[in-house]
Design a protein around this nucleic acid. Sequence first.
DNA 1: CGCATAGTTGAACGCGGTCAACGTGAGTGG
DNA 2: CCACTCACGTTGACCGCGTTCAACTATGCG
Lengths: 242, 242
Amino acid sequence: MPHPALQYFLNRLLIRSPLTEEERQAILSMRFHLAQVSPNVDIVPPGHLVTYSCLVAEGLAGRFGQLPNGMRQITAMYIPGDMCDLHSAMLPRVEWAVQALSAPLTYLKIPHEELLRVSRAHPRVAEAFWRDCVVDASIIAQWVVSLGRRDAAARTAHLLCEMALRLECAGQGSRTAFEFKATQAHIADALGITPVHMNRVVRWLRQQGVLSWTGRTIRVLDWDGLVRIASFDGGYLEMRRE
Amino acid sequence: MPHPALQYFLNRLLIRSPLTEEERQAILSMRFHLAQVSPNVDIVPPGHLVTYSCLVAEGLAGRFGQLPNGMRQITAMYIPGDMCDLHSAMLPRVEWAVQALSAPLTYLKIPHEELLRVSRAHPRVAEAFWRDCVVDASIIAQWVVSLGRRDAAARTAHLLCEMALRLECAGQGSRTAFEFKATQAHIADALGITPVHMNRVVRWLRQQGVLSWTGRTIRVLDWDGLVRIASFDGGYLEMRRE
DNA sequence: CGCATAGTTGAACGCGGTCAACGTGAGTGG
DNA sequence: CCACTCACGTTGACCGCGTTCAACTATGCG
């Protein structure tokens, strides 16, 4: 019986990449080690060679880019079914860190040799992995657009729209009611603003009546309003089934 | 006799991916159409299906993310030997535009069927392509860090360091003397600042004595100084030969 | 010569940063 | 059961980086 996270991961791949039964079984049969971490602990220290990729099973993970002076910036967030660093199968020397953003975070450590064994035996699986990396890059590119062109409120709204759709797609709630297991400080980090200003934006969004946000639970009261504030177009998430 | 741009592209791949003579020949033998464009013309309009990828032969190309309201943000820059949108081989419906940033820009249109034919016949080539996309994503992730954590001067210095190394690696000048064929307005766009402020930053960098910048020619007078201002660490470019 | 594009500079404004304080809820130990 | 602690959320006052608007210069090209 494969771990449910592998099934989630496979389902995510199947949205964009058709795979035969045999290929699906190959993915589900990959060996792994189950692990769990607390926030503020690097799953992988940056600048080192890694031998496995991490598949989020439960919780929220963040990828941190870092400057030589030690400052960090969240460059991606990963929800259950996401392979945090499938990239590292192709570039084992990672230049970033992955950390838990929620407690607890459970994840599967899948050895690169397993990923490469399967992808080399099944070229269509290799393409599915490649395609998954491309979607990840597409999301990061949208973050660049957000950081470069949107003000703090639009950035926040945009991230919320993105996470709402991704969580809905992953079966973790609906776009109008979901758990965003990150602190306001984490979100501020990802958006390139200060936690103080993040909080002001949250207050403003509440005043606009587009959402209620208590603890880690977000309820979107006016989805179209949120989309409008964000100038959101979800096409880049590539979640439509062809 | 293959086009020199294909050779540049192959050389770039070989930095990170060892390939046999047969695999190299397969890449060099891909069919293509030579094309040329002026600035401010989309090579590919966003939201459409594309059937080929673009390999820059001469000049500078930019990838533009765009907001529903029409505002645009440069999310990547491509120099000779770069495949702008190798991504599109895996996701043919592109959510961005590619434009020339220099006049003229010449490039090779390589049909996806060619790329896929070669990559399916040679799994190691598929991995080389996959790896190339991962490096591209790594660069974009660094841009997120820049936009999120660096001030305007550091951002500018960082982009200059990046382009200096990439151009040097591509055989287009040295890191201390190169042509950056983009206008200050384009660079400002990529860095998420206004052209006006971009110019002030250039003036400041000149006053610091780290570079001279006349027309499109940049001369770095103090490389270490520029690196310090940028907090630059080139590891993410993955240009060391293993 | 005339026009367009790129670069340059000044003055005033405002978004978001910075600093500092306080509120609040969960967990912990006396 | 209360006191204490710690992390997270919240709010106010002031400040500065970068924007905005406007003008002017330089360069190249028909």
